[in-house]
């Protein structure tokens, strides 16, 4: 392989990882954390990332756990997409995250790629991120001074850019249990059905009260269409308190499209994405309501 050599270390504890990263940062050594490798390995090969040391975090058992702790599910950063698809806990309490993970890559990629890696790589087209946004997930970052906990929406600053420091490790993704009344949908549009990067993806969770005939609450996030992942608050507002009707859905779709353009500006893809984001929002909301 033609890329430059690097040193390799595989610590057994998160504390050792952070210590390794801290020393590297102090000495000005380029260090990269290796989780599942599905993003890092191609970057090494293309020379877009040139680490001097690679810190493999695959041998730290605590990073592979999925557990319920009170009103939260704690998912270790090394949990793979395949494990998110099959985990009973995730399917029961954060089903939309399972659905999103199912859409990632191929079986081979899902067996390697991790939730932590998908988050830290911060691709605007990442499938799990819109799901984490509507689940109001929190991220636990461990650094030399201890832990800090951030809302997932505060983590990303721009495509492939986050607030994580060079000496910090994402250890856990914490998902508060959503209200049981919520119905969730994940949709993905891509050039083909498998092994494709999303042109657009969407996660939606809502509660529609059939007695009152109103949307009680709605959480919507459209991926691959804004510089950083955000809730489609204008579309949410267009639905809350309103009945399930074609006019209301259309209004929500329009609001989402307008918010997207406001956040992203007019781009070459806008002519395609603007009508599509509206249709996608309408479709997702309809599907979620039809789930009962």
């Amino acid at each position: 392989m033609s890329y430059p050599a690097f040193r390799y270390t595989a610590p057994r504890t998160t504390r050792e990882v952070v210590e390794t990263l801290r020393i590297a940062k102090e000495k000005g050594i380029r260090a990269n954390v290796l989780a599942g490798g599905t993003d890092l390995m191609p970057q090494l090969r293309e020379g877009t990332t040139t680490p001097e040391v690679v810190v493999d975090i695959s041998r730290i058992p605590v990073l592979k756990r999925i557990e319920r702790m009170g009103n939260e599910i704690r998912i270790g950063a090394m949990v793979t997409h395949a494990e998110l698809v099959t985990s009973e806990l995730v399917r029961e309490y954060a089903g939309v995250l399972s659905e999103a993970a199912k859409m990632v890559g191929s079986p081979q990629i899902r067996n390697l790629g991790t939730l932590g890696g998908n988050v830290v790589n911060a691709s605007p087209a990442a499938d799990t991120i819109p799901a984490l946004v509507i689940l109001e997930a929190k991220l636990v970052l461990k650094g030399p001074e201890g832990e800090r906990i951030l809302s997932v929406t505060d983590f990303f600053t721009a495509p492939y850019q986050t607030v994580i420091e060079a000496d910090e490790l994402l250890t856990d993704i914490v998902v508060p249990l959503p209200p049981p009344s919520g119905r969730a949908v994940f949709l993905k549009l891509a050039r083909r059905k498998a092994v494709a990067i999303a042109r657009m993806n969407l996660a939606c969770m809502l509660y529609y009260d059939r007695q009152k005939e109103t949307f009680e609450w709605v959480r919507l996030c459209v991926g691959s269409s804004t510089p950083r992942p955000v809730r489609m608050t204008e579309a949410e507002k267009a639905l809350i308190g309103k009945p399930f009707s074609t006019e209301v859905l259309q209004e929500a779709g329009r609001a989402a499209a307008e918010q997207m353009v406001q956040l992203s500006g007019l781009r070459s893809s806008t002519a395609y994405k603007k009508p599509v984001v509206g249709d996608l929002v309408m479709r997702a909301v309809r599907m979620a309501v039809e789930k009962g």
């Binding site: 390799y8 490798g37 599905t38 493999d56 695959s58 990629i109 067996n111 390697l112």
Partner: peptide, 11 residues
């Protein structure tokens, strides 16, 4: 199943 091109041998 995994893609063995995307795994470091040491892993």
């Amino acid at each position: 199943a995994v893609d063995s091109c995307s795994v470091l041998a040491l892993q």
